[in-house]
Amino acid sequence: MSDKPAELLTPDAAGVERAATLLRAGAPVAVPTETVYGLAARADDAAAVAAIYRAKGRPDFNPLILHVPDIPAARALAEFDDRAERLAQAFWPGPLTLVLPLRPDAAITPAVTAGLPTIALRCPAHPLMRAVLTAAGLPLAAPSANRSGAVSPTSAAHVATSLGGRIPAILDGGTCESGVESTIVALRADGSWQLLRHGPVPQGALAALLGRSPVSLTDARIEAPGQLASHYSPGKPLRLQATSADTDEYWIGFGPLPGDTSLSATGDLAEAAARLYAALHLAAAAPQPRVAVAPVPEEGVGAAINDRLRRAAAG
């Protein structure tokens, strides 16, 4: 690691080319996506992927999401069936990750999948991330650009605060639109499917397209990011469903409950998702030693918000 601050790259052709040059050389670079900022590295180089784990302090049993520019690039890495094709056609580019059987000839290092026979693939929608994928000419492994288990970053400033001198560069794309990580779906060989992580694509939309409800998770196997019980922590005890706050609590409000900051004063769940991690970053920096969060409805993207909050509280 270095004490030198990360180079802040501009959101233009020069910044994209600089990011691509670093990535081709095996260095990790923080890049914006429509969900959160990712810490990208070339997926065919074990040393480059190891640099992600090292910068994040990430457990090596936790696999990484691989980002690709289009469906043909995904087909070269995973076994696509009719269900995968339908989901990709409907939701890519966008915030949906598919966990599929890994092709035996996939040109990636085993560290990306943590040795599993499956691979997590996403085709991102953010124009800067798509430009970097095209310029680098490589599939990129890219988990969230923060220390493992901590609050995910939705701005370049969040990345700089979390990773400091641990990475060489950050491509500044402003604030992320969705604000929570992608929905993750695993398609099983028996025709069933499982929801491994809630996200911007709701379960109902997936079930409607696949024609059946998901099968419940029955084991503790980690197949994709965001499945750890403790994650997204602001580093302080966090209390959920709080309709008021104690004097030693920083209160994150929602709707009619204003708090010290609010996820959405109007009760808009999309706005709440976009502001979630920024609010947790504010809570982490606040003088109060504890955090309270107002109730958020368990509907639509609210399921993803509550999933992240429960994991943050577990931490």
Rank of each mutant, 00 (worst) to 15 (best):
T243K: 15
E17W: 06
D70K: 03
S213I: 02
P117T: 02
E34C: 05
T154Y: 05
A111I: 00
P101M: 00
P124L: 03
D82H: 08
F80I: 02
R308W: 13
G179T: 12
A242K: 11
L163V: 06
D82P: 01
K4R: 14
V99H: 10
S2W: 01
A40G: 02
P5M: 08
A273T: 14
L257H: 08
P95F: 14
A314S: 09
D82I: 04
G94P: 04
S213T: 13
L238D: 01
G149I: 06
R18P: 04
P200C: 04
T35L: 08
V301T: 14
A304D: 13
D260M: 06
V31T: 12
E85Q: 14
A160T: 10
E85C: 02
G199P: 10
P153H: 07
S144I: 10
E298S: 14
G259C: 11
Y277L: 08
E34Y: 10
D190A: 08
A272K: 14
P117S: 02
K236M: 08
F80Q: 01
E7G: 00
T113M: 01
E223S: 15
T247N: 14
L257Y: 10
V180L: 09
S233V: 01
A14E: 15
T161L: 09
S148I: 05
V31P: 11
T109R: 00
W251N: 03
L171N: 10
L39S: 06
A25E: 14
I65N: 07
G226N: 13
V99C: 07
E249S: 01
T21V: 13
T183K: 07
T113Y: 02
A76K: 03
T266S: 15
I222W: 09
L98C: 05
L87D: 09
A111F: 03
A41Q: 09
L64M: 12
E85I: 06
P258W: 12
S148N: 07
S148T: 03
P256D: 04
L217G: 11
L280H: 14
A285S: 14
A207P: 03
A78W: 03
G300H: 09
